[in-house]
Design a protein around this nucleic acid. Structure first.
Length: 592
RNA sequence: GCUCACGUAGCUCAGCGGAUAGAGCACUUCCCUCCGGAGGAAGGGGUCGCAGGUUCAAUUCCUGCCGUGGGCACCA
């Protein structure tokens, strides 16, 4: 499985919202005419103009001519582009610097803002995608590892849906396996009511630890636990009833966390490992029929090509353990079958930590060898790194335990509450608590989403809650200021949407161009399954807005026409910012 | 040992084939106090881990090395 990159969903639709794409499209045929074949004009953002076209250099090399000469030929071939570009200039070794026409920006902006998706292209082919994420374990506390999977997965789900794909969310909770013997026996020992209470208040780790301690210390208990596993797997009704208590109390708790975290997951998305029980035996059978199954050290295994162990010998994927039990490879393969054959999915996304890369790659290889996975169906590992403390090591609590996710989120809201109380003491209690939730949770999610997911990142309260820099509060603040202008103006946002904006000032231009690039930003994030690309874009948008706001008076504009035009720009920026934050799963309050 | 990631400014991070490598924080010096000062301008600070290679062009692609972290058969 290739590490997430390029679902290659390209499209063709009217004029691209992003001016750079529009320029690229317009110049493509001129380049083809000059080069004698189809070449990418290589249109890029530029420090020297609105955009620069770099394609001439490559073409000149191929043709054995002078790049500046090629550039000149391209300019002749492209003909009149004055509807799009107000300036074209050959610079340096053969770059073509492009100045976009103000009129063009104006009409593009109008048309993008008339679009429900704010100019973002819809997917050319609508896929059914299964996104596998979050996956906490029953009777175990959720921790920062689940935070990453949940938050990144949630954003990917929103992005996929936004461009028109059908998304099936799957929360593959750990609700099966040998630990349930001891957990159920412990449940019996302390009584169902006590247990439900303990789990209900979220002391999952306490419950688990007690069970574990007894298991390790008490041989009789250990024996009962083992016997209980057999009963559970055999479908004993009483045991199943106890098991369901554990599962339902745990999922009730997970839902509290999901609600606090403000993600889309619900009970309907839960597909526990147990739900694949009936599909495990067929996995073995089908592998056997395909003649891929071998017996090694008493276990049923498949040796996928290209994997070796530390001795250089072929590395097996264990399908059925020596004791006859199944393991996670079996259930992962059952998942592939289920998703492809029953759900008809063609995109299987796994938002799982980077350490699982080899395992998932082996599963993919086996699934491909046996024929369950074949183009156009593809598996995609959206891997992520660890959350580190300020010491550069895995984030731990002061006592040295793993950090409870629920506690971390509560602290985020508390810190945000304190910050708002200090900065906006006039806000009502009710409103403050709502806004504090949006800011605190937004800060945590954004700090998780805003750096390249494959890298580890350092968790830092002060930085993530800062109103400066690439943070959620900064973006939310920028949005609140945009909204504030309309309150002061006493004008409804929608009232300025029929206005055709006039783009003149350099800051108006910069802001307009940025707004129009939302399309590219969304697709860029989606192509790489990297929400941080969208974060970077939104930060630049907010920065451009700040510069605009600083230099271009809106309410005190020179003329009514300019005032309306600038209000229109504010509205556009606010809509894109809100929509972008929403795609990250972050709320944008109108006041804060 | 094999293998997969990562190594960019004091710190935290962007950029990943194109013209002088960016941001925030921290630091220095100013400005304003104007539609939300939770401001603005300027400055210092980088041999983009090291060495080769491909290319008109490499922080960006390839190879090797060094450093850090992960994975390498019955726990998921």
């Amino acid at each position: 499985m290739k590490p997430a990159r390029g679902a290659s969903m390209r499209h063709n639709k009217k004029t691209m919202s992003d001016p750079l794409l529009a320029v690229s499209e317009r110049f493509a045929w001129a380049f083809a005419a000059v080069a004698g074949e189809v070449v990418d004009p290589v249109v890029r953002p530029s420090d020297h103009a609105d955009a620069q076209i770099n394609g001439a250099l490559g073409v000149a090399k191929k043709l054995g001519t002078n790049p500046r000469q090629v550039a000149e030929q391209v300019l002749v071939a492209v003909g009149d582009v004055s509807d799009m570009c107000s300036g074209l200039e050959i610079a340096g070794p053969g770059f073509i610097n492009v100045t976009l026409s103000n009129q063009f920006l104006s009409t593009q902006l109008k048309s993008a803002m008339n679009d429900q998706c704010l100019g973002v292209r819809v997917a050319p082919i609508r896929l059914t995608a299964v996104v596998d994420y979050s996956a906490p374990n029953v009777a175990k506390e959720m921790h920062v590892g689940h935070l990453r999977s949940t938050v990144i997965g949630d954003s990917i789900v929103r992005l996929l849906e936004f461009v028109g794909h059908t998304v099936i969310r799957e929360n593959h909770i750990g609700d099966w396996g040998t630990p349930f013997g001891m957990l159920i026996e412990h449940l019996i020992d302390i009584g169902q009511n006590t247990a439900a209470q303990e789990l209900g208040v979220g002391d999952l780790d306490g419950f688990y630890r007690e069970a574990r301690n007894k298991f390790d210390a008490d041989d009789a208990f250990k024996e009962r636990a083992r016997a209980r596993v057999v009963l559970l797997q055999g479908g004993d009704p009483d045991t199943l009833h106890l098991w369901r208590t554990l599962v339902s109390e745990s999922t009730r708790y997970f839902n509290q966390v999901y609600q606090l975290l403000d993600v889309l997951l619900t009970d309907a998305d839960i597909v526990g490992e147990s739900s694949y029980n009936d599909l495990l035996a067929p996995v073995v059978e089908r592998l056997r029929e395909a003649k891929l199954l071998e017996v090694s050290d008493g276990a049923d295994v498949v040796f996928p090509a290209g994997f070796t162990n530390r001795d250089g010998d072929p590395l097996p994927l264990i399908i059925r353990k020596g004791d006859g039990g199944y393991n996670y490879a079996t259930s992962d393969l059952a998942c592939v079958i289920d998703r492809v054959e029953r759900l008809g999915a063609s995109l299987l996304i796994y938002v799982v930590g980077a350490p699982q890369a080899q395992h998932l790659s082996m599963v993919e290889t086996v699934a491909t060898q046996v024929g369950w996975l074949a183009p156009p169906v593809q598996m995609m590992h959206v891997a992520f790194g660890n959350v580190l403390g300020s010491d550069g090591k895995m984030l731990k609590s002061r006592v040295g335990d793993t950090v409870k996710l629920a506690a971390l989120l509560e602290e985020a809201v508390e810190r945000a509450t304190a910050a708002i109380a200090q900065k906006n003491p006039d806000m009502s209690e009710h409103e403050r608590s709502q806004v504090a939730h949006m800011i605190g949770i937004g800060a945590v999610k954004y700090s998780d989403l805003s750096t390249d997911r494959v890298r580890d990142y350092v968790f830092d309260w002060e930085r993530m809650l800062s109103f400066d820099g690439n943070t959620a509060p900064y973006l939310q603040y920028a949005h609140a200021r945009m909204c504030s202008i309309f309150r002061r103006a006493g004008i409804e946002r929608t009232a300025v949407r029929s206005v055709m904006p006039t783009i003149l000032d350099p800051r108006e231009r910069a802001l307009a161009i940025r707004v129009l690039q939302f399309d590219s930003a969304v697709w860029d994030a989606l192509d790489r399954y990297s929400p941080h690309r969208l974060c970077t874009y939104l930060y630049e948008l907010a920065t451009d807005f700040t510069a605009f706001y600083e230099h271009c008076p809106v309410l005190k504009a020179d003329t009514d026409e300019q005032r309306l035009s600038r209000l229109n720009l504010c509205d556009a920026a606010a809509r894109v910012l809100e929509c972008g934050l929403n795609l990250l799963g972050i709320r944008a309050p109108e006041q804060m």
